[in-house]
Amino acid sequence: MVMQTLVAMDDSPQASAALSYALEEFPESAVTALHVIQLPEGYWTSFTDSETELPGYESAQERARELLETAEQTAAEHDRELETTVETGKPAREIIDYAVGNGFDQIVIGSHGRTGVDRVLLGSVSEQVVRRAPMTVAVVHEQLNH
Score class of each variant (00 low, 15 high):
Glu83Asn: 15
His78Trp: 07
Ala75Val: 09
Ala71Ser: 11
Phe104Ser: 02
Ala99Cys: 07
Thr52Arg: 15
Ser111Glu: 08
Asp79Pro: 11
Val100Ser: 10
Glu62Trp: 04
Ser111Tyr: 02
Arg114Asn: 15
Ala92Gln: 06
Thr88Asp: 12
Leu68Asp: 07
Asp97Val: 13
Glu87Asp: 08
His78Asn: 14
Ser59Asn: 15
Thr88Ile: 13
Gln106Pro: 13
Asn102Phe: 08
Asp97Trp: 07
Thr84Leu: 14
Ala64Pro: 00
Ile95Ala: 03
Thr85Phe: 08
Ala99Leu: 01
Gly101Asn: 07
Thr52Gln: 11
Thr70Lys: 14
Glu72Val: 09
Glu81His: 12
Val86Ala: 03
Val100Cys: 12
Glu66Ser: 08
Gly103Val: 11
Gly56Lys: 04
Glu62Arg: 13
Gly56Thr: 02
Glu83Cys: 05
Thr88Lys: 14
Ala64Asn: 00
Glu83Lys: 15
Ala60Lys: 07
His112Ile: 14
Thr85Arg: 10
Val86Asp: 04
Leu82Lys: 07
Tyr57Ile: 02
Thr85Gln: 11
Ile107Val: 10
Arg93Gly: 08
Val86Phe: 01
Ala75Leu: 01
Tyr98Asp: 04
Gly103Trp: 12
Asn102Asp: 01
Glu66Met: 05
His112Arg: 15
Ile95Asp: 01
Ile109Trp: 02
Gln106Met: 14
Asp79Thr: 12
Thr84Pro: 07
Val108His: 06
Asp97Lys: 13
Glu94Gln: 06
Ser111Cys: 10
Arg63Glu: 09
Asp105Glu: 04
Ala75Pro: 02
Lys90Pro: 15
Phe104Asp: 01
Lys90Cys: 12
Glu53Leu: 09
Glu94Lys: 09
Glu72Ser: 10
Arg93Thr: 15
Glu77Tyr: 08
Tyr57Glu: 00
Gln61Leu: 05
Ala99Phe: 00
Ser59Arg: 11
Gly110Lys: 00
Ile95Gln: 03
Glu83Tyr: 13
Glu72Ala: 03
Glu58Ala: 08
Ile109Asp: 05
Tyr98His: 05
Gly89Val: 02
Gly56Leu: 05
Asp79Cys: 13
Pro55Tyr: 01
Pro91Met: 06
Thr84Ile: 14
Gly113Val: 08
Gln106Asp: 09
Thr88Pro: 04
Gly110Val: 04
Glu83Asp: 15
Gly113Ile: 11
Gly110Pro: 00
Arg65Ser: 07
Gln73Leu: 11
Arg80Thr: 13
Asp105Ser: 03
His78Pro: 14
His112Lys: 14
Ala60Asp: 03
Pro55Arg: 01
Lys90Ile: 14
Arg63Cys: 00
Gly113Ser: 10
Asp118Trp: 11
Arg63Val: 03
Gln61Met: 10
Glu72Leu: 10
Leu67Cys: 11
His112Thr: 15
Glu94Trp: 02
Pro55Gln: 05
Ala71Gly: 06
Gln106Thr: 09
Asp118Met: 15
Ile107Ser: 01
Gly103Tyr: 07
Val108Pro: 01
Pro91Asp: 05
Pro55Glu: 00
